[in-house]
Amino acid sequence: MSATKRLVVFGGNGFLGSRICRAAVARDWDVTSVSRSGTPHWSSVTSSSSPPAWSHKVSWERGDIFRPAEWTSLLRGADYVVHSLGILLEADYKGVISGRESPIAGLARAFDRTKGAHAPANPLERVRRGEAPEPGVEPPASPAQLTYEMMNRDSAILLAKEAARAGVEAFGFVSAAAGAPVLPARYLSTKREAEAVVAREFPQMRGVFFRPPFMYDRSRKVTMAVAAAAAAGSVANRLTGGVLGGFLGAAVTKPLSADAVADAVVEALADGSVKGPVEVPQLEELATKAWRKTML
C-alpha cells in the first residue's frame, strides 16, 4: 500500500482552492490549506454557511504568502504544493464598496497601463541585484497596493522557490486559459511570466501550469449566467474557425465547472507524466479520468 500523499494548497479557502482541497481529501490525501484568513467563509464558496463534512479533514492554516517565515515549515514532507491565489482586478473593492473610492476611479486604477510596468519580470533578480533582502518580495502595506505582478507572478515564484527548497515533487500553478476584453492585458501576461520563471528556475521540480477557462458553480448563480454566455460564445468561435478567440479570449472559451477543474488539478498532480501547461481540453480529460476512478 502506497504512502499517503501530502498536499499544501495556498489559497485553499477560495472558490477553486477549496474544491481542490475537497478533491484531495476524497483521495485520502493529507491536506493543508494556507491563506491569510485560515478557515473559509463557507457562504462565499459554497451554497451553505455550514462547513461540509470533508472540510474537517483539512488543516486550515493562516499565513501571508509574502511572509515565508509564517509557512515554510508547512512545506516539510509535502509531495505537492498548489498556488491558487490571484486577483482579477487591481481596484480596491473594499474602498469602492464602502464609498472611499468611486467605481470609476477604482477601474481607472485597475486599467492603469503604467502600474507595475517597471517591476522586474523575475523577483528573484531583485535578490541577486541586492535590491531587497531574502526572499526578495516585500509584503504590501494594504490590499490597495496589490498588483498583478505581486499576486499573479511574484507570489507564485516565491512559493515555487520555497517548495523546491523543501524538496516538493510537483508544483501546481493555477494560471488562466486566456485574457478577456474586460481585463487588462497584464492579468494574463503576469501569469505567463510566472509559468516561464518557475519552469526555468526550478527544473528539478515538476511544474504543472493549469490554464482553466471561466469556472462556474451552482452555488454562485452569477457564474451560471456568465458560463452560459461563454458556452454560446465558444460555439460561435468554433463555427467561425476560431477568429473570435483572438480578441475575446476567455469570453469565447468553453467554461468548466470549478469542481471539474479541481478534480483535474488533483489528477494531474498524481500523474507524474503531466508537466507544463495544461490547457482546457486536457483539463477535461483529466477531470473525466478522475471521475471514472470514483466509479470503480
Rank of each mutant, 00 (worst) to 15 (best):
M1G: 08
S2M: 09
A3L: 09
T4R: 11
K5M: 10
K5A: 12
G11W: 00
G17M: 01
G17Q: 01
R19F: 07
I20Y: 00
A23F: 00
A23S: 05
A24N: 00
V25M: 00
V25F: 06
A26V: 05
T32Q: 11
S33W: 00
R36S: 11
T39E: 13
P40I: 00
P40M: 05
W42S: 04
S47H: 12
S50E: 11
P52K: 14
A53M: 08
S59T: 15
S59I: 05
D64F: 07
F66D: 10
F66G: 06
R67Q: 14
A69Y: 15
L75M: 08
D79M: 02
V82T: 07
H83D: 08
S84G: 02
S84E: 00
L85E: 00
L85M: 14
D92A: 13
V96M: 15
V96F: 07
R100F: 05
R100L: 14
E101Y: 13
I104F: 13
A105E: 08
G106I: 00
R109Y: 14
A110V: 02
D112G: 04
H118A: 13
A119K: 15
A121S: 11
L124H: 03
G130F: 09
E131N: 08
E134I: 11
E134T: 03
P140C: 06
P143Y: 03
A144Y: 15
L146V: 06
L146A: 02
T147N: 05
E149T: 12
N152R: 04
S155F: 10
I157V: 10
A160F: 09
K161Y: 12
A163R: 14
A163F: 11
R165G: 05
G172T: 00
F173C: 02
F173A: 12
V174G: 04
S175F: 04
A177I: 09
A177D: 04
A180R: 02
P181H: 14
V182G: 06
P184I: 01
A185Y: 10
A185M: 14
R186A: 02
S189D: 01
E193V: 01
A194F: 13
A194N: 09
A196H: 03
V198G: 03
A199I: 09
A199L: 13
R206E: 15
P212E: 01
P213H: 05
F214Q: 07
Y216Q: 07
Y216R: 02
D217A: 03
R218A: 14
M224K: 10
A227V: 03
A227N: 09
A228C: 14
A230L: 03
A231M: 02
G233R: 12
G233E: 02
S234V: 12
N237H: 11
T240F: 12
G242L: 06
G246A: 15
F247H: 12
A250P: 03
V252R: 12
V252C: 11
K254D: 05
D259K: 10
A260C: 07
A260F: 08
V261M: 03
L269D: 03
G272V: 11
G272R: 15
G272E: 08
S273V: 08
V274N: 07
G276F: 02
P277K: 01
P277E: 03
V278C: 05
V280Q: 01
P281C: 10
P281L: 06
Q282E: 15
Q282A: 14
A287H: 05
K289N: 14
R292M: 11
R292F: 10
M295S: 12
